[in-house]
């Protein structure tokens, strides 16, 4: 690859990541390379055989301000365009295979940032799409693990279960916020 090819390659890398982000998918450098080859950039990638194309793509990705990287649970870097695939959603996608962690981190982020507890039904709906049995199993796993000891629940007067992290919300406050959330429809 000549220096003159870099802008085109960079542009193609951005397009490859955007294509995946538009499909709500995270991509690693290896998949970007595959997508580049499919776009006819194989020759360009192979001009310096001593350089692994993945490393080269990773190096180029690190210099693209419009593309964000995420340290995946798998340990590798994955990429997305935050304009098409938000950081929040990217994290959800990355954690989808690890239910307890997925739920715990989502609960923690909500408790920390907004702050608010979340109704348990949140996890039954897209993009989580967890079956009640899976949610229950995750709760049991969390209860047995020191890692998740901050994850707690409160039940409103109407019987809805809300989840919160005690690292960020006191129980009484979480209970208040849950009651308030549930009665918004009566306070229009």
């Amino acid at each position: 690859m000549s220096a003159g090819d870099a802008p085109d390659l960079g542009k193609a890398i951005v397009e490859a990541v955007r294509e995946a982000s538009a499909e709500a998918r995270l991509v690693g450098a290896d998949e970007v390379v595959e997508r580049l080859r499919a776009r006819g950039f194989g020759e360009c990638l192979d001009t310096e055989p001593e350089v692994d194309p993945c490393r080269r793509v990773e190096a180029l990705l690190s210099g693209l301000p419009e593309i964000a990287s995420l340290a995946s649970l798998s340990g590798r870097a994955v990429y997305h365009d935050p304009a098409l695939l938000s950081r929040t959603y990217a994290r959800i996608l990355d954690r989808k295979g690890v239910t307890a962690l997925l739920m715990a981190e989502e609960i923690r982020a909500n408790s920390r940032d907004y702050p608010r507890p979340v109704p348990v039904e949140l996890f039954e709906a897209p993009p989580f799409d967890l079956a009640p049995e899976a949610i229950e199993a995750a709760f049991k796993a969390m209860a047995a693990s020191e890692e998740f000891r901050d994850i707690a629940f409160t039940t409103t007067s109407q019987g809805t279960v809300y989840l919160f992290s005690s690292l960020h919300l006191e129980r009484d406050y979480a209970t208040f916020l849950a009651e308030q959330d549930e009665t918004f429809s009566m306070n229009p």
Binding site: L84, S86, R87, T88, Y89, I92, A125, P127
Partner: peptide, 9 residues
């Protein structure tokens, strides 16, 4: 709802 098109929900 969480969506790819929004950072917050």
């Amino acid at each position: 709802f969480p969506t790819p098109q929004a950072e917050y929900y």
